[in-house]
Write a protein that binds this DNA or RNA. Structure first.
Lengths: 353, 353
DNA sequence: TTGTACGCGTTATCAA
DNA sequence: TTGATAACGCGTACAA
């Protein structure tokens, strides 16, 4: 074929059904008042002509696109290749996408994934202003990321994946990071570990700083039994990784060099924990007998580890679905007040601790 | 704020610049003939008003959306949760998304990811007919998947990720599967392995059947030295997995039960190889000393294995980028003849073989 | 080179 | 309940 056949228009359907275009429109949109006979005739005409409404025309007048953007904002982009690769390969983002897609699909709302870094925030802003989407699910972990504020200034409905840095009146979903880290600490203590250490994420990311604080806070709590060997709070050895396997591995080696006697390790993400596990085992230390390891996330990576990783579960899919629900509500009711939904983490005990 | 401020229209920009709307349009679209002075005045007005064109209105008249769909079609969907999760967590799809996004972004073309299974192909067809996108990147591995033919019948530009089952005149990108498997066979032989076996993917998927055939074909080639111990071609032990870690693990156990003496194993995907590695090691066999293992893909999973996985590299990102390029060309020139681009795989030697 | 005017395919407002 | 008709915001012949 030379050129693709044009889609039938509403006018053609109307002609085929012997009614006006307005009536066809009403049938398409389930408007109440259409005589049953007419409605049926129109539906027949729709089926016969294979009519589907043109989204551009529709959204021009309704000012709705029936799709939302999932903007993944990361601070830096070393080079394009690894940037995109990391984002689309990281199980966390995969779970977010899966959760959001699953929730949106029944609503017939489509998801456009838009990865971005600070260098092209303006592209994203432009994209949003063009009316491509009705709202934004914004995944931004970095505390200094200006994008949340920019998006909010646009006045377009948005939901964030974590508490915004400033006092931004915008809805967000988060997990109780501190409590999760506390669960890990409690579990290690209950196992009998006394020389604890932790591998935290970047401290300019709430998931990095809060998990570290939560871990330390639990150990500092006067309510827990005063067991021997627990160093002063700030004395808990910590090393920073970048939420990657390699980062976790390097941090673990650094930690083991400085503190060879540690017997319990809390690693602030499963990916890093996988790397840490490697480091520990490469040094001939057994997990969990010599060193118990607890991760954070309960991502697919936790099941790829040997031994299977004990970890703090964060229900990412559910959280993403909740984000989607909040967003749809804000789109439907622009005046709705922003709110935050905090999920409680749970401990998933497997083999590593 | 109660309601979000409307975007300025082209008319407002025109008024601000003291010209007609047509002139603004010409400036926006870089039309040649606009007096420099006027052009500058218009650009100033655009900047001042913060004008961005409305995509709905634009695409209504241009019949272009400047976005393409990445349709991921999988045969079955046990349940929604695991389906979406598997798709968005599988490193293969992640690499495809990364490659396509990277190529499309400079062209200002956006990517909409649309997962689907046979049960809702009609939804996808409807989506495509509505004019949401200008073309389709179709990832469909199953040979009996009717979607490629359906999409082709729509007359919308499309590029497939592998050779279509029937004689469909449509462009596609693929890797030389047989040759890749041959590389694996040759490497195992050159290492001195003589009792070979393979774990193949589902045989109704080309990537499953062709890799198996390629592996056997290489061993059957009379040109290779007639070494002792290589069983007749059809005698090569094989077990089927579903391109998942668990599938590879189970298949490896079955294989080791039936043929305890194998010393070389070709696994048709890295994910399955990761599982197989586990199985082999769980039985106390050393890799590569007792059993050498070669994977296929060179995905991130290959680096998550211990020992690091020797594997057949398939340049997925580049392939996806090529798909995107082909698609853009078909969109720009609808009369363009379909063509296929076959990438040559390479062997990446690490530790497992 | 610039402006006028029409059309893109819908939805929404009014009358009838 | 149904049907004209006016937007929606932009691109583009065609005319000036």
């Amino acid at each position: 074929m030379i050129s693709r056949p044009r889609q039938p228009t509403m006018d053609q359907v109307a002609a085929a059904a012997g009614v006006s275009r307005a009536t066809v429109s009403r049938v398409m949109n389930n408007a109440a008042s259409v005589a049953p006979a007419i409605r049926e005739a129109v539906q027949r005409a729709i089926a016969e002509t294979g009519y589907v409404p043109n989204v551009a025309a529709r959204s021009l007048v309704t000012r709705r696109s029936n799709s939302v953007a999932l903007v993944i904002s990361e601070p830096d982009r070393p080079d394009d290749h690894s940037f995109l690769n990391r984002i689309f390969t990281d199980p966390y983002f995969g779970r977010v996408t899966a959760g959001a897609t699953g929730d949106l699909r029944p609503h017939d709302v489509h998801l456009v994934v838009v990865p971005t870094d600070v260098a092209d925030h303006h592209q994203v802003v432009r994209y949003l202003r063009q009316g491509h989407v009705d709202g934004v699910l914004l995944i931004s972990s970095n505390e200094h990321d200006p994008l949340p504020a920019q998006v909010h200034a646009l006045g377009i409905p948005a939901v964030l994946s974590s508490r915004p840095a400033g006092p931004l009146p915008v809805s967000y979903v988060d997990v109780d990071q501190r409590r999760g880290a506390g669960l890990a600490a409690a579990h290690l203590l209950s196992r009998g570990c006394r020389r604890l250490a932790t591998i935290n994420g970047p401290l300019d990311i709430p998931a990095g700083s809060e998990r570290l604080e939560g871990f330390r806070a639990h150990l500092a709590d006067p309510a827990i039994p005063d067991v021997t060997g627990i160093p002063a709070v700030t004395g808990i050895p910590a090393a920073t990784g970048h939420f990657t396997r390699a980062g976790g591995e390097a941090a673990a080696h650094a930690l083991l060099d400085a503190h060879p006697s540690i017997d319990g390790l809390f690693v602030a993400s499963d990916l890093m924990a996988e790397g840490a596990l490697r480091a520990v085992q490469d040094r001939g230390r057994r997990v969990p007998q010599d060193i118990a390891v607890v991760g954070f996330d309960d991502s697919s990576a936790a099941l790829e580890c040997r031994p299977l990783l004990t970890t703090v579960r964060q229900p990412v899919e559910e959280m993403a679905a909740e984000m989607a629900e909040l967003l749809l509500a804000h789109i439907a009711t622009p005046t709705r007040s922003p709110r935050s939904v905090i999920f409680q983490p749970t401990l998933v005990i497997r083999q590593s601790a």
